[in-house]
């Protein structure tokens, strides 16, 4: 590993206490939430003795520290425990839902880039002219529209009248999934694009004022050619950072959209586990979300270092 990338190892090491802290926080929050998980497992008709037996089996009467330590011991071995509700391994539940969320996030990012790049570039080139004002106005509108509302509008105005897209579910075959993901991806793209457009516009405007761009102009480059060859790579650096910062927002939007469109992804699983007070499942999903944020931030730093050789990140 090159010296410039030594920070990766340091970051990974620093991520461990961060993840431990997140899991502990969720663990403590769930401890103080009312409702006895043992009663949920054993059923309404069971006697108090049966409930007590289940509490004992699950170690729910042990100290919070013991329960936390036991959980962490399992996590280290890849064991996220068993769901209180479905009695399935949480790791299996997460694995089953992960591809759906991944499918949504990747297609949403593609859509957002398809919106962001042309509009961001156009707004920068059209700086302070009508095109710029219109783009910025539309971006502002996009920021103001909640994603669940956009999703519902797409269902009501596109899916229902045309019948081209399902209003919910993920389907079985590749074709069905591609079809099912279109509207959620467009919604996610619309949710993410406005801030990206404004960021890209600002970066491009900054780059356009640089000496090297002036040199490009002197060589005869102009318009989109100038932007593509001399500006975009440098401007992309801030986009990558922004994308990382948007990860939390992306995960939140994913939760909302999976519920709106009935997609069986991690977000929907998280909501269901929280509603059912399925502690091991909530912990499992939270761990995955936290890990995702940590890895995305790390990835963004790596990409930035690749994009700009001057970048030196200290762990």
């Amino acid at each position: 590993m090159s010296g410039r990338f030594l920070f990766v190892g340091k970051r990974l090491i620093l991520a461990v206490p961060l993840l431990l802290g997140v899991v502990l926080l969720v663990f403590l929050l769930l401890q103080i939430t009312p409702g006895d998980p043992a009663r949920q497992i054993v059923g309404l008709r069971a006697s108090e003795a049966d409930v007590a037996q289940v509490r004992d089996q699950l170690g729910l009467d042990d100290s919070v520290f013991s329960q936390y330590a036991r959980y962490l011991g399992g996590v280290v071995q890849g064991d996220l425990g068993f769901s209180y509700k479905s009695r399935q391994p949480v790791a299996d539940m997460v694995a089953a839902r992960l591809p759906v969320s991944g499918w949504l996030v990747i297609s949403g990012l593609v859509v957002s880039l398809m919106i962001t790049i042309p509009l961001g570039v156009w707004a920068a080139i059209q700086r302070d002219r009508a095109g710029d004002h219109i783009t910025r106005g539309v971006s502002l509108l996009g920021i103001a529209m909640p994603s669940f509302w956009v999703g519902l509008m797409l269902i009501l105005l596109v899916a229902l009248p045309t019948g081209w897209f399902p209003v919910g579910g993920f389907g079985d075959t590749f074709g069905q999934r591609l079809n099912a993901i279109v509207l959620p991806a467009v919604t996610l793209g619309i949710a993410m694009a406005p801030i990206q457009i404004r960021s890209l516009r600002a970066s491009i405007i900054r780059c356009l004022g640089s000496d090297y761009v002036a040199a490009g102009r002197a060589l005869g480059a102009s318009g989109f050619l100038l932007v593509r060859r001399f500006v975009l790579r440098n401007a992309a650096s801030s986009m990558v950072t922004l994308a990382a910062v948007q990860t939390s927002f992306l995960l939140f939007t994913m939760v909302v959209l999976e519920t709106t469109f009935g997609l069986p992804g991690l977000g929907q699983g998280m909501v269901m586990a929280a509603v059912q007070r399925d502690l091991p499942a909530v912990q499992g999903y939270t761990l995955v979300f936290a890990l995702t944020v940590v890895l995305v931030y790390l990835l963004a730093d790596v990409v930035n270092a690749v994009l700009d050789p001057r970048v030196e990140i200290r762990g």
């Binding site: 089953a96 759906v100 990747i106 993920f170 389907g171 075959t173």
Partner: peptide, 25 residues
């Protein structure tokens, strides 16, 4: 790359090629 990743993910999500067409509907 995007298409391949998408295809792999769709495949990973328990794809059932025996499912009848239109099962989403």
């Amino acid at each position: 790359g995007v298409i391949v990743i998408g295809a792999i993910m769709a495949g990973c999500a328990g794809s059932n090629t025996d499912a009848p067409d239109g099962a989403t509907g």
